[in-house]
Simulated scan of single mutants.
Amino acid sequence: MSHLRLSRRLCPFRPYSRSFAAISSNSPPPSLNTVGPYQVFDRNAKMIQRDNAARRQGGAKSRTVDYVRDEVAERMLDRFLDIKRKFGTVIDLGSGPGHFSKLLETDKVQKVIMLDSSEATLNRDPDSEFEVEVERLRGDEENILQSVTPGSQEAIVSCLSLHWVNDLPGSLVQIQKALQPDGLFLGAMFGGDTLFELRTSLQLAEVERDGGISPHVSPMTDTRDISNLLSRAGFTMLTVDIDEVKVAYPSMWELMEDLQDMGEGNAVIGRRNTIHRDTLAAASAIYKEMHGSEDGTIPATFQIIYMIGWKPAPTQPKPLERGSGKVNLKDVL
C-alpha cells in the first residue's frame, strides 16, 4: 500500500467497474441510448469534461494532478517488465496524455499507439517526453474494434480508463478479439473501495439536509468479479491483484477540485447537476469527523485492480490432465 501525503496546494508530487466521479455543476444534459448495453455513463459529457480539463491553463492544471495516474502507471510498468518478451507495437487504450507510454523504453517496446476519445488529453504533452515512437489515435475506448483490426495486436494495455466504460464485459471481449494469439492484455482500473470516504460523507450529508441521495460517485466494479469477466472474455493464464494508493488532502474541497482538474467530474446518467453548498459543507464536516487524521488532513483511498490476461494460443503451457500426476500428495506431506 502506498501513502501519498500531498495536495497540489501544499507540495508538488510526481513519483490516481466502476470508479470515481467528482461533483459537477456544469455537466451537459445526459443522453440515454436505447440500443445496446445499459448506459450508466454519459460518454459525451465525459469527453467534454476531459477536453476542458486538459485545455485549462494550457494543460498546466491537468499536469499538477497527474500524481495518482503516474503512480499507478509505474506500478503497471513493474508488472510489464516482469514479462520476458519484447514487443514491436503496444496499444495504450484510454492513454490520456501517456502516463504509461512515457515510461516505456526501446529495449522493451519499439512503438506505442495511444488511443483515447479525448483529443485534447491525447495531445496534451509533446513527443519529446517519450522515448519510444508514438502514434496518437482518437477513438472510442468502448469500441476498440472500430479503430483496430481484429487479431492484429501483440499487446494492449489500459491504465485507469476502463472505469468510464458502460459495457465492461463487452469491452474486454473486444480487447481479446483485437489481440493476436498469445497476445497480452495488461490493465489497471479502480476497485470497489475507491473514494469510499467521499461517497459515505456525501450520502450522509444529503440524507440529513435533503432527505435523499443522488449519485455523485460512480458505481464500482467488485474486485471479485474481474477474474470471471476476464475468463468470460476468453483470456487465459489470468493474474489479478489489488493494491491501494492513499492521498492526504487538507480538506474535502481540495480533493473535489483535484478530481475536477483530473477530468473526473460526475458523468453518471441521471445525476443531479447541482448540490447545495450547505450540503457540501455538512459533507466536509462529516468527512473530517469520520475519516480525518490527527494532523488535520483527510485521506482519500484509491483501490487499484491490476489484471493480466493472455489470448489463447496452441503454444501456451497447459495444465496436465486430471489424474495424470505421478506423485502422491500424501508422500509429499
Rank of each mutant, 00 (worst) to 15 (best):
H3W: 12
H3I: 14
C11H: 07
S17P: 02
S27D: 05
S27F: 04
L32A: 01
P37H: 13
R43F: 04
A54H: 03
D66P: 00
V68T: 09
A73H: 03
T89W: 00
P97C: 08
S101F: 10
D107L: 02
K108H: 14
V112P: 06
S118L: 02
A120T: 10
T121D: 02
F130K: 05
E135W: 01
L137M: 15
E142P: 04
P150V: 04
S152E: 11
Q153R: 13
A155W: 06
D167K: 09
D167H: 05
D167G: 08
D182W: 03
L184H: 03
G187W: 03
G187E: 05
L198Y: 12
Q203E: 15
G211V: 09
I213V: 15
P215F: 03
S218E: 09
S231F: 02
A233Y: 05
F235D: 10
T236V: 15
D241R: 03
K246I: 15
T274V: 08
D278S: 13
A281G: 05
I286F: 09
Y287C: 05
K288E: 09
M290D: 11
S293I: 00
D295H: 00
F302C: 09
I304K: 03
I308K: 15
P314R: 05
E321H: 07
S324E: 10
G325R: 11
N328R: 11
